[in-house]
């Protein structure tokens, strides 16, 4: 296999000669961004809560969340599969083999990353801010909005880490999505499929596009972070 072959495959993908490429990219992005958004909505407040709350068993929760950052995607996929399968507790929703199931699975993967990194960031900031905020009467959870806002540049990195995990994984979306063309096929599942079919240029081209997208997103976030950090000190 040679470089012109990959290049040809990329050109064919991008100019629409390969049908269904752009929907695959679109679905990948839609699923991953939805999962990251959901994980942010749940994980940022929960991470901040863990940072400032003191309760029995807190250490256990922190360790568990940190450990879950390494949860294998196939295991997460399996759990969500069991949950959503027809005989499972949420089988009635009929989400299995739909993008919704893929979003759920990726949220499960991203959430521990967002919670753990938010907890760490907010805890450090809390140590610095506690007395001033306490002086203003912002004690306990009343301090959370201030802390999340002032940690915003670090938290963008946490969300990016979550995005990286979700966009790169194949196991979970394969199990709960089923890799159905035009319905639940994402870039990663397509790469796995094309590789096993032996269409290496197509697989490599898809991989290149995936990496390029991730690179662009990270560059944007880095730039935004730099500008923001300059303005906030």
């Amino acid at each position: 296999m040679d470089a012109p072959g990959i290049l040809e495959a990329i050109v064919a993908l991008v100019d629409g000669t390969v049908p269904g490429f752009w929907p695959i990219v679109g679905l990948s992005l839609a699923v991953t961004l939805s999962a990251v958004t959901l994980a942010a909505a749940i994980g940022l407040p929960f991470g901040a809560f863990l940072a400032i709350a003191r309760f029995p068993g807190r250490g256990l929760v922190v360790v568990a969340v940190n450990a879950l950052m390494g949860l294998p995607p196939v295991v997460a996929g399996l759990l969500v599969f069991l949950l959503l399968s027809r005989s499972g507790p949420l089988g009635g929703l009929g989400w299995l083999f739909t993008p919704k199931a893929m979003i759920v699975a990726q949220t499960v993967l991203v959430l521990p990353i967002v919670v753990a990194l938010t907890r760490q960031t907010v805890e450090d900031l809390w140590r610095e801010y506690a007395e001033h905020l306490g002086s203003l009467g912002l004690v306990g959870f009343r301090a959370v909005p201030t802390l999340l806002w002032d940690a915003r540049f670090s938290l963008v990195t946490a969300l990016l880490a979550g995005f990286g995990r979700a966009s790169a994984e194949v196991g979970a979306v394969l199990i709960v999505g089923g890799n159905i063309l035009g319905h639940t096929r994402t870039m990663t599942t397509a790469i796995a499929l094309e590789t096993s079919k032996g269409d290496l240029p197509l697989a490599l081209a898809l991989g290149t596009v995936l990496i390029a997208l991730t690179l662009v997103l990270n560059a944007l976030a880095y730039g935004a972070g730099r500008i923001g950090a300059q303005n906030a000190g």
């Binding site: 007395e131 001033h132 002086s135 009467g137 906030a232």
Partner: peptide, 18 residues
């Protein structure tokens, strides 16, 4: 907060804002 006494610390706590 409405206690009308305020405290200024040895190392001023400045929020990451203007």
């Amino acid at each position: 907060a409405a206690k009308s006494h305020a405290m200024v610390f040895q190392k001023p706590v400045m929020l990451r804002r203007s």
